[in-house]
Structure formats: C-alpha cells, structure tokens
C-alpha cells in the first residue's frame, strides 16, 4: 500500500527538553491501522527554537485527517501539561 498523502507538522518549543518529552510521549501511541498510515518524528534547532517535526503519511486524505487530528489533540494536552507544571 502506498502513502499518497502526507502532512508535516512543525511545532516550535523554547526548550529542547519540551520537544524531547513531547516526542517521547507521542511516539508510544500505537497507530491503529499501520497498513494505512505511518508517523515519524524528528527534532531540529532552528531560529532559536527547538522544532518538533511530525511527518504523517497516509493512504488517503481521510485517513490523514483522522491521524493529524488525533496527534494535534494529544499535542495540545502535552503542551497544557507543560504549562501547568
């Protein structure tokens, strides 16, 4: 099965630690249909920011939308936790 649609999310964090924790937290979530989608993560340091790059690959826009929505929802929870504690 080929992944025709992809989306790269680029999320800036002030601290390397925050980007790293976000990556580790997100990466343990299993992909419910691994034949239909794939996710990879990468951290880079650009313009005084630590960027978490999340590459999403899917067989269709519909699968990509579901995947992106779930990951961003999880990411918002992670960011809220950083802000609270």
């Amino acid at each position: 099965m080929s992944f025709t649609s992809s989306l790269t999310l680029n999320i800036p964090f002030q601290l390397q630690n925050q980007a790293s924790i976000a990556l580790k937290t997100l990466s343990v979530d299993p992909i419910l249909r691994p034949d239909d989608a794939k996710v990879s993560y990468l951290i880079s340091y650009i313009s005084n920011c630590h960027y978490l790059h999340i590459d999403l690959y899917a067989i269709s826009d519909r699968v990509l939308r579901v995947l992106a929505n779930n990951i961003i929802a999880s990411l918002k929870t992670i960011v809220e936790c950083f802000d609270e504690f």
Binding site: T4, N10, P12, S47
Partner: peptide, 16 residues
C-alpha cells in the same frame, strides 16, 4: 521549508 519561519507552528501538506 523552515527558512524565514516566525516560531509559530505550521504544517505542509503533500500529495504525491
């Protein structure tokens, strides 16, 4: 892709 960014989240969609 990251040249000129303003430290805001953004996304890039590709369809091969």
């Amino acid at each position: 892709d990251l040249n000129g960014i303003e430290n805001r989240p953004f996304a890039i969609y590709y369809n091969i």
